[in-house]
Design a protein around this nucleic acid. Sequence first.
DNA 1: ATAGTCAATAACTTTCAATTATTCGTTGGG
DNA 2: CCCAACGAATAATTGAAAGTTATTGACTAT
Lengths: 304, 304
Amino acid sequence: MVRVRQLEVLCSVIELGTTAGAAEALGVSQPAVSNMIRHIEDLVGFPLFKREKGRLTPTPEARHIAQEAQHLFAQQKRVGRIITQLRGGTVGRLNVIASPSIGNALLPRLVSEFTRTRPRITLSVELGSVDEVINHLVSGRAELGFSITPPRHAALSVRPISTGEMLCAIPNGHELCSSERVKILDLNHVRHISYATGTPLGQMIDSVYSKNGIERRYYCEVRHTSTALELVSAGAGAALIDSFAMMGKPRPEITLRPTDPHIEVALHTVTSNLFPTSNIALQFQDFVRKALNDPEQRALYGIT
Amino acid sequence: MVRVRQLEVLCSVIELGTTAGAAEALGVSQPAVSNMIRHIEDLVGFPLFKREKGRLTPTPEARHIAQEAQHLFAQQKRVGRIITQLRGGTVGRLNVIASPSIGNALLPRLVSEFTRTRPRITLSVELGSVDEVINHLVSGRAELGFSITPPRHAALSVRPISTGEMLCAIPNGHELCSSERVKILDLNHVRHISYATGTPLGQMIDSVYSKNGIERRYYCEVRHTSTALELVSAGAGAALIDSFAMMGKPRPEITLRPTDPHIEVALHTVTSNLFPTSNIALQFQDFVRKALNDPEQRALYGIT
DNA sequence: ATAGTCAATAACTTTCAATTATTCGTTGGG
DNA sequence: CCCAACGAATAATTGAAAGTTATTGACTAT
């Protein structure tokens, strides 16, 4: 089978007209070209040039081959470009699934910024519960997951990338605004928006209550921090929100207060062990980690 | 730049799933494949396979590259096929121009037979005077010319490929049929169809007359032997025809007689020195030479 | 346990493309 | 007419890429 290199040399000689010219263009010596031409002629079995008065004139066959070879070069360049793009992570597909806390406000911002310099990426951003995160990753529907609750699954790798805390979100002017630090147990006495007992956040908060022998009370049950946030924003009451949910979108109508006790939460990235993680996914993971941990970057995303 | 060979190995491993399988398919050893994969990964700068439990799983990037590479392989195969076809002379373009004597009846037959075994050739068969033959060849519009009169032109190579003679074509039953050999000078006394004085054939015949101090007389002037032949065929008179014009198409209604004096004519092939002669043209030239000189072949074309 | 499968590594070998140095043929001024 | 200039071809050698055999090490299934 004819080599691409051979065709390159052939085309160059046809184009430039002389072996010396082709050699210069290809960055090799003249004999290299001369030998290559002879070698190709041996290979194809018919003359590609007419030697006359010390000059080379391409035969119609050689021209024909050269013409066809152009497409081959184009393809090779194309593959080369794609590899470069894959290396730079500027092309490909990225499927992310995230828990709503981060997925609702911050993730869209991060994704938007990430793709700004990588215009040829196609992506999908899915929101879902921890179970859905697990599902998407083990089935290969997503390459990268974000979750507060670290999913427990043998086929998944979980890495914490940032830490945050639970905050109490209160409508401006609410009675709780007066205290610098909101006692979690006090929420039982106000219009409290909280999470179903079965949910990870619900259990997290429940453990504070049960430790004190008190039962958590709330008048409004939601599944996602984003929903809780919207409700608080509408003045429907106070809610505990993880700090990640507050990132990315300024909420001037909401007052935030640290809680007592302090509850630390961590954001985890999740990847599957069943499939190799794509280069883009790794890059995005890194991008998010940097955005969440570099103070300069945090400011960019309005992270308090 | 990535080599085609490297992509071949990559694709084979992705397809077959194992280095050993790929090695077998590619006809090389397993370590060759293993080394190549590592080498490609060094080259592209990101992992193409995930090594796990002693198995290789391709990353999405590797799959992407492999997919693109398919087009590259297709192009390479295409170029390879074209070279094979060019070697066999079974593809390409052949532009022939011939003087009408041969071009009218024999050449179509020869061309038809030549292309039968080379179905992918596209061709053009032009008829023209010697001047037109010269023109087509020096301008590159034709690669191969056939002419009775050898064209005189510095940029053209002329080779005689077959000899013939002038014959007298007479309608069956014509008074001249009685003689075994027709005296050219006698044509002055019958309904004579002949060629313009300026044409090569005209000059050729004229020289016989002028040698005897007689002026050639004819009642019908034509430019081409083929026209003369048609007129004879229609019973319009007698004409001198070169033997090549009689080849290829049986004319039962015409009687042929040798002439006195005997005039030998030769068929020449003409090629240009300005452009390299294509492989196909050379093949066709050879094909025609064989057809005209091999008795067995001649019979096939009804050459008497 | 053990045989079998598969990838990786080490140490050479082969092959191909490239190098430098040189020769040979053609051509265009002085 | 000769000579310098240019271009192609050849010879001898080098270097890098791709391939070899032999072997090891990790994992799997019986």
